[in-house]
Computed example of a mutant assay.
Amino acid sequence: MKILFVCTGNTCRSCMAEAIFNSMCNIKGIEAFSAGASVIAESRTSLNSASVVKENLNVDISGRKAVQLTPFLVDTCDLVLTMTSYLSDMLRSHMEKSANKIYSLSEYIELEGDVTDPYGGSVEVYRQTYRDLEKRLEMLIKKLNEDRSI
């Protein structure tokens, strides 16, 4: 199973979600990827995102280039989880044939609120976003495990 995390620029939230999920997930055969809906060419993971991932997971994502979301990328994934409800609504309206596999992360795990964009914030703001993602991804993994046992 391929899960795609999507945010705006693929330099903060979604690349952190990809790293956190792949380090936490204990379900064989599930892997996460990430992309951005509006990527700036040649952009890379933000310094604060890379720093927070390194301090928590000891994984270096500092050289990671942002990936532009495409219909092909959506087609190749089994589940697309966005960081905001606005983004999931937008993707569902533009990619109607894939709408049944596009959700906001919060919607999918039945939690209120969006994942706050830390872009431009202090490293502490990024740490808060990291902790929020970690909590939500723990809930996602629990849901995926429950769904597999049905």
Rank of each mutant, 00 (worst) to 15 (best):
S85Q: 14
C15V: 15
A50D: 09
L111R: 13
A66T: 06
L73D: 07
S46A: 15
V52D: 11
A35V: 01
C15Q: 12
E42D: 15
L57P: 02
K101H: 03
P71E: 15
K54P: 01
S34G: 02
Y103R: 00
K65Q: 13
A99F: 03
E55A: 12
E18D: 15
E107G: 04
V80Q: 04
S106E: 07
G29T: 01
I40R: 14
Q68T: 10
V39I: 05
A35N: 10
T11I: 15
G63M: 07
A99C: 00
L57F: 11
E96F: 08
K28W: 01
R44N: 05
I109K: 06
S106C: 10
I109L: 10
A99G: 05
G36V: 08
K65S: 14
A41G: 07
A35H: 13
S62L: 08
L69E: 02
L79N: 00
K97I: 13
A41D: 15
M16D: 11
A99Y: 04
C77R: 07
I30S: 08
E107F: 00
L87N: 04
V39F: 03
A32H: 09
V53I: 15
T70S: 14
S93Q: 13
A50Y: 06
I30A: 06
M16T: 11
S106W: 03
M90A: 13
C15A: 03
L73H: 05
A32E: 00
E107N: 11
K101I: 01
E110R: 08
V59E: 13
F72D: 13
M24P: 02
F21M: 14
I30P: 04
